[in-house]
Computed example of a mutant assay.
Amino acid sequence: GRGRSGGSGGRNRTSTFVVGAVGALVVVAAAFYVIGTEGDKKRDDARKSPSPTATTSVKLPPGVECSGESCAGKDAEVMGCSGDLVTTARTATVGATTVEVRYSETCGAAWGRITQAAQGDTVEISSGKSTQSDTISAVGDTVTYTPMVPVDSATDAEACAVLAASGEKGCTE
């Protein structure tokens, strides 16, 4: 045999390595899942609690300054809710402007952001009874975002953009 046994031996070693690596990933993923679900359970318990002191006793990650109602009307960057803690939950395009619902599960809050916008363009976020907005005031600015509104999930908020030049309005679905 022309290297037949040597070739299959190499393949067997490779597949054994792959199976071992996949097994290790499964163990790591399972550990993260267990840790993650414990965190979710604690958050749900804190949310269900009627006492106002329960929300202040929730341990927030370092640098995060608010959660839920305490984030209402505050700046996401100043409160430590942006960066790695944020996702874009919904997006829409109005003219050349993109409007987004930005969401931080850690902070239990959302805010609206517009990009590729122009002076006078406005972004608004609403969730339940809470509404916040911001308008680009400086010439040359193309991005702005609203203060935060408290939300239970990313789907609880809607962001809208109103373009100054055309009066066109569009909202995230």
Rank of each mutant, 00 (worst) to 15 (best):
Ala96Leu: 03
Thr131His: 08
Ala72Tyr: 03
Tyr33Glu: 12
Thr87Tyr: 08
Ala76Asn: 03
Ser49Asp: 15
Gly95Ala: 05
Ile125Leu: 07
Arg47Tyr: 13
Ile114Cys: 05
Gly68Ala: 15
Thr122Asp: 01
Asp45Lys: 08
Arg90Met: 08
Glu77Val: 15
Cys66Glu: 03
Gly73Asp: 06
Val86His: 04
Val34Trp: 13
Cys71Ala: 08
Val78Lys: 14
Ser82Thr: 11
Cys66Ile: 04
Arg43Met: 13
Asp121Glu: 01
Tyr103Ser: 06
Ser82Pro: 06
Val64Gln: 07
Gln119Ala: 07
Cys81Lys: 02
Asp121His: 09
Gly128Cys: 08
Gln119Thr: 09
Ser70Leu: 00
Val86Leu: 11
Glu69Ser: 12
Ser67Ile: 10
Thr106Leu: 09
Thr106Gly: 00
Thr91Phe: 02
Ser104His: 06
Phe32Leu: 11
Thr115Trp: 04
Tyr103Asn: 06
Val86Gly: 05
Ser70Val: 02
Thr87Trp: 09
Thr37Ile: 11
Ala46Pro: 08
Glu100Arg: 06
Gly36Ala: 15
Cys107Ala: 15
Pro52Thr: 03
Ser82Trp: 09
Asp45Met: 08
Cys66Pro: 02
Gly73Trp: 06
Val94Asp: 04
Arg43Glu: 15
Glu124Gln: 11
Leu85Ala: 11
Arg43Ser: 13
Lys74Phe: 07
Leu60Pro: 02
Ala54Ser: 10
Gln116His: 08
Thr106Lys: 02
Gly68Gln: 08
Thr53Lys: 13
Gly80Ile: 05
Gly120Thr: 10
Pro50Leu: 08
Val78Asn: 12
Lys74Val: 04
Leu60Gln: 09
Ala72Pro: 05
Ser133Asp: 11
Glu38Gln: 14
Ala118Pro: 08
Gly83Ile: 02
Pro52Met: 07
Lys41Gly: 14
Glu69Trp: 04
Glu65Met: 12
Thr135Val: 09
Arg90Thr: 07
Thr131Leu: 06
Pro50Arg: 05
Ala89Val: 08
Val64Gly: 10
Thr55Ala: 15
Gln116Leu: 04
Lys129Ala: 15
Asp134Glu: 13
Cys66Asn: 05
Asp44Ser: 14
Gly83Glu: 10
Gly68Pro: 00
Pro50Asn: 11
Thr88Ser: 10
